[in-house]
């Protein structure tokens, strides 16, 4: 018997979420036996690097955008930020190669693949705005060069890479929010759908 409580939006949302993503799927304690390769560690490595990128970025933001030019502690935190970004992209690209060769979109995992690709593209944009926000020779050169590409598409009229304030805001607010939200969505989809099973193979298919 359906009560009025059953009809509530809240109740229905909770049941839907709990059905799709019960706690044992969100935080699993087992994996299918085929998950046994180093290639599986690059997703979590990418996320860890993202955490270090965000952590070092938060420390950089504490004292404002000029701090890292003036203080050796600030410069060191900038170095942490740079190298965690290098690790982030490194791990993400190896993760992408691995997932490609697993055909990881199979079995209803197209959305998982697509959120991953969009996260990759959003990360490139985030990194670019970071380079543009450095306020040094590198950012002067990068922005004056990059403006031609972005202007040629028409987007330069709204996304002005020569406007430091705009680039900094995109780098520290808008794009990180997008990257983190996309990453969260990607990981939730991985948890909902599980890890893609191996291709059926005449030699190895036991089932």
């Amino acid at each position: 018997m359906s009560t009025s409580i059953d009809q509530q939006w809240t109740t229905r949302l909770r049941r839907k979420v709990a059905g799709k993503l019960p706690p044992e799927k969100l935080l699993p304690d087992t994996q299918p036996a085929y998950v046994s390769s180093w290639i599986y560690v690059f997703g979590v490595t990418t996320m860890s690097a993202l955490a270090v990128v965000i952590g070092s970025g938060l420390i950089l933001s504490l004292r404002g955008p000029q701090w890292w030019h003036e203080s050796s502690i600030g410069h060191f935190v900038n170095s942490l930020h740079l190298w965690s970004v290098e690790i982030f992209f490194f791990a993400m690209v190896v993760h992408l190669w691995g997932k490609f060769f697993m055909g990881a979109w199979r079995g209803g995992r197209t959305a998982t693949w697509m959120t991953g690709v969009v996260t990759f593209l959003a990360s490139i944009a985030t990194a670019f705005t970071g380079y543009a926000s450095q306020s040094n020779f590198d950012s002067q050169w990068i922005t004056t060069q990059a403006k031609d590409g972005i202007n040629s598409t028409g987007a330069g009229a709204f996304f002005n890479v020569l406007n430091l304030g705009q680039m900094l805001m995109w780098h520290i607010v808008l794009l990180p929010l997008a990257a983190v939200a996309l990453t969260a969505l990607h990981v939730l989809l991985v948890r909902i759908k599980g890890v893609v099973p191996p291709y059926e193979d005449k030699v190895g298919e036991a089932q």
């Binding site: 087992t30 299918p32 036996a33 979590v44 860890s48 270090v52 965690s84 036991a206």
Partner: peptide
């Protein structure tokens, strides 16, 4: 399509894995 997995499962500690990855990446950075 992906074949449905009917085989076994092995233990997997997602929190431990995440913690190790974070520590390793943090140290490497």
């Amino acid at each position: 399509d992906a074949p449905e997995w009917k085989g076994g499962h092995s233990p997997y500690d997602i929190i431990k894995e995440g913690t190790i990855a974070l520590v390793v990446v943090g140290l490497l950075t």
